[in-house]
Design a binder for these strands. Structure first.
Lengths: 129, 129
DNA sequence: CTATCTGCAAACGTTTTGCATCTGT
DNA sequence: ACAGATGCAAAACGTTTGCAGATAG
């Protein structure tokens, strides 16, 4: 409770349950994963609340929305800089905590103002091979 | 016509129209973009055919499905190795034809069998700044 | 007290599917 | 001839929205 004060969002019991589920979570859960997990201990939870909370956390920079799963958005509570490795069969996602030099010279940016980058590695996970 | 023989898929007029639209296309169109463009000259085109054709081309390795647009799948007929730069405001996509060294040591792959990687650069495009 | 959140259900946009008919090879 | 494609409409899926009632601060 105390530790979430800095988020400056209303801390409802539903939100605390979601925050609790996300804390230290390395599974890159989808909205449904979160919904299912939190519903167990909080039967009245609705999808609207899950998405609403994720939106608030995104805006506060506390959760990152991943676009690497073709079927649904996935969410990552680890906001430290890192990359991802995704299984091309089951879409399991693993973290890659390593820094790479991937700089673009001015002439390659097509007039864009660059703000960041992300590297996705593709592979077949242990249980899919 | 001749040049598509090697695809070894049935070349219907609808498919030729789609192939024609995709040829050399640098816009990374969505299924709807393709549908709209091809419908102009081919009024009976259906979405099922667009998706069916894209699926066939994907399987033949002739088109790449991009997952970088959060709202919809985008398709890239350029199958040469390259990366992408995406506008965080309007989702416009530009190609980055440059090679980067992004190798992973065995101990970072979490047991995955690596098969590839892709780098996404984020920025604000010229018309959005 | 009141700005904001919740929960429900309905709406939305994209993609997939079932199926009867048609067509490229 | 026939495997496989088309076109339509309906369904499926993840996500968003509207709104009445509830609640954190």
């Amino acid at each position: 409770m105390e530790k979430y004060r800095s988020l400056q969002i209303k801390l409802t019991p539903q939100r605390l349950a979601i925050l609790n589920y996300l804390e230290g979570n390395k599974c890159h859960p989808s909205a449904e994963d979160i919904y299912k997990a939190v519903t167990k201990h909080f039967p009245t939870m609705s999808f609207a609340t899950v998405y609403n909370t994720l939106e608030a956390l995104k805006n506060k920079g506390n959760v990152q929305e991943l676009k690497i799963d073709p079927n649904k958005k996935r969410y990552d509570p680890d906001i430290s800089r890192h990359h991802h490795l995704i299984c091309i069969k089951c879409n399991e996602i693993a973290d890659i905590h390593k820094e790479f030099k991937v700089e673009l010279s001015e002439d390659l940016t097509a007039g864009f103002h660059l703000v960041g980058n992300a590297i996705e590695f593709y592979g077949v996970c242990q249980s899919c091979k």
